[in-house]
Structures are given as C-alpha cells and as structure tokens.
Computed example of a mutant assay.
Amino acid sequence: MHFSRQHILIGLALFALYFIWGSTYLAMRIAIESLPPFMMAAIRFIVAGGVLYLWLRWRGKPAPTLRQWGGASLVGLFLLVIGNGGVAYAEQTVSSGVAALAVATMPLWAAVFSRIWGYAPSSREWLGILLGTVGVVVLNLGAEMRASPLGAMVLLLASASWAFGSLLGKHLPMPQGVMASAAQMLCGGVMLLGASWMHHEAIPQTIEPAAIYAVLYLIVFGSLIAYSAYLFLYNAVRPALATSYAFVNPLVAMILGAWLAGEALGHAEFYALVLIMLAVVLVLPLGRRR
C-alpha cells in the first residue's frame, strides 16, 4: 500500500494528539506544583508561539494581517486562555486523570455548538449528548469533583470553550498553515499573562527542577508539536477524526497519573469514563463520509 506524504503527516499528527496530548495533563500538574497556573500557561505559550513565529518569519512567511491577528486572538481566548488555562487552574484541586476525563466531553459540546453554523445533530448524536450528560453528572458525584465544585465547573467551562473556539476558528480570518498556531499561541499567551496579573500571581522564590522540565516538555511537545498538529488535522481531515483524541487522552492521562503520580480512580470516575467514552463514540461518526 502506498502512503503519500499527507497520509504520513496525518498519522504523525494523530500520534501527537493521542499520546503526547494525553501526557500533558500530568505535565501541567507537575508544573503548577511550583508555578502559578496562569503564569505557567503564559510562559508556555509565549515562548512556544514566539519561537515558532520568529522561525516562520526567518523562513520568509508573511506576518499575519491585522484581521488575522484579530481572528487569532479570539481563537486564542477560547482555546488557550479559557480552555487550556482553565484546565491548569482546575488541576490545582483535581487530578490530571479526572481533568482529562472532563475535557473528553469536548466533542459533545462541539455537537451542540455546531447548530450555530447550521448543522443539526442527528438522533444518534443527541443520544450521545444525553449519555455524555449522564456521564458528566456521574463524574461530578465522584469524590474529587465533590471536593472541588469550582474545579469541576472550570473544567466543564474549559471543555465547552475549546469546542466553541475550534468551530469558530473555521469561520474567522486566520494566517495560513503553521503561522496560525504561532499567532494563536502568542495572543493566548499575552492574555494569560493578563489573567496571571489579575489573579495577583507571584513569581515563586524557588522552582523545583521537575516543574522546569515539565514546562519545557509542554513548550516543545504540548505546544510546538501537538497544538500545531491539532490545527493541521482540523483543516486536513474531517472534524470527527480531528477530535478522536478524546477517546485516548483520558486513558493515557489516567495511566500516567496512576503510574507516575500515584493518582487513583474511584468507582464514580470509572463509571463516568465508560459513559463518556460511549457518548463520544456516538457523537464522533468515524465511519461516515464528510
């Protein structure tokens, strides 16, 4: 069987989303043990976006127009500030595995928000949304979510914001190719810096080496590689395939959290995992045509 360059790139991008993104939940948890959440996220995206932007400009890529910067700012707000920043904030009180499970509801939100752009979910998708809602209720009955109602609320808001921003980005003026990643990360990073200032976050006196390594991992693998891979996939394949990482990320995050951080799942979290995964199977029609 002959594989084109496009097929190879899609395969590598899916690997990045499935496994690298699944590991970033634990990396964020380690990073915020020394760094405040919004400050950590701001550093991550400003450095990653700045490096990528300068590299692209050095290679002769055109700078984004004013309208494209505006589109990148809006997407950066929903995906990186509310979405990713919200997850980092919630992980102060919620384990990385449970955070990944809550974020796995993103395709359910995407199915709901798609009505804004004229797509009505099918009966199968509505069944998935209903099942996913039950899964979220069960998840919130678990010990971790009950112990942190604010964390639970922020995680669901983050997931909904990521879904809305992903759909919105397809209808906004955006730089071409990888420049879109650079612009969104730069804009999102600057806004996260503002959120850090508004929350009176202070630079810690001491930063553990593990936190530094975690931030470096998030910059290189979570942002430069995996975030760019997500934007590439969202424009190269059908949305169902681009968001299929929702199947795998919670499993990767939970395995790594249990193995490396001693995190444990209760019965409620396990049942929620089954319900949400079944719901995502219904909402992501992987076997259908575009």
Rank of each mutant, 00 (worst) to 15 (best):
N140Y: 13
A100N: 03
S96V: 06
R67I: 11
E125M: 14
S123I: 15
L79S: 04
V94K: 08
L79Q: 03
E91H: 10
W69N: 02
L131K: 00
A160Y: 07
V137C: 09
V75F: 08
V134D: 08
T105E: 10
S148F: 11
A120S: 15
L108P: 00
W117V: 07
A152M: 02
V137N: 10
L130P: 07
G76F: 00
S122P: 00
V134R: 08
L101F: 04
V138M: 03
N140M: 14
L127D: 14
A111Q: 05
R124C: 10
G71S: 09
S161K: 08
V112R: 12
G83P: 06
A104D: 06
V134P: 00
A143E: 15
V112D: 10
M145Q: 11
N84I: 05
A111C: 05
G142Q: 04
V81M: 02
S161Q: 09
A90C: 00
G76A: 08
I82L: 06
S122K: 15
G86L: 02
I129N: 01
L131Q: 06
L141Q: 14
L139R: 03
L79P: 11
A160G: 02
L139S: 04
L79D: 05
L157N: 10
A110F: 09
S123H: 15
V154F: 00
G135L: 09
L74S: 09
L139A: 07
L156C: 12
S96I: 03
F113I: 07
L141P: 00
S95M: 03
A147Y: 14
L101Q: 01
G128R: 02
L101W: 03
L155N: 00
A102C: 01
L108V: 05
A88G: 07
G86I: 02
L141M: 15
P121Y: 14
Q68S: 12
A143Q: 14
G70Q: 08
L150M: 12
T105R: 07
P121E: 05
N140I: 11
A72Q: 02
N140F: 15
Q68L: 09
W109L: 00
Q68N: 11
A143W: 13
L157G: 08
A120I: 15
V81W: 00
V87M: 08
T133Y: 09
L141C: 14
L141W: 15
W126N: 06
Y89K: 14
V137E: 13
V81I: 04
S161A: 12
M145N: 02
S122W: 13
V81Q: 02
R115D: 09
V112K: 12
L157K: 11
G132S: 09
S148M: 08
V134A: 11
V94W: 03
S96K: 12
P149V: 12
L139N: 04
A143D: 12
A99Y: 05
S114F: 10
W109Q: 04
S73G: 12
G83I: 04
Q92A: 13
P107E: 05
S159E: 01
L108F: 05
L131P: 00
A120M: 15
A104E: 06
G83N: 05
A152D: 00
G76Q: 05
L157E: 08
A100D: 01
A110Y: 12
T133E: 13
V138S: 08
I116S: 13
V138F: 12
A147M: 14
G85P: 05
G132F: 04
L157C: 13
R115Q: 10
L101E: 07
V75C: 11
G142W: 03
A104Y: 06
V103L: 11
A102N: 01
G71L: 03
V136Q: 10
V137S: 09
A99F: 01
P107M: 04
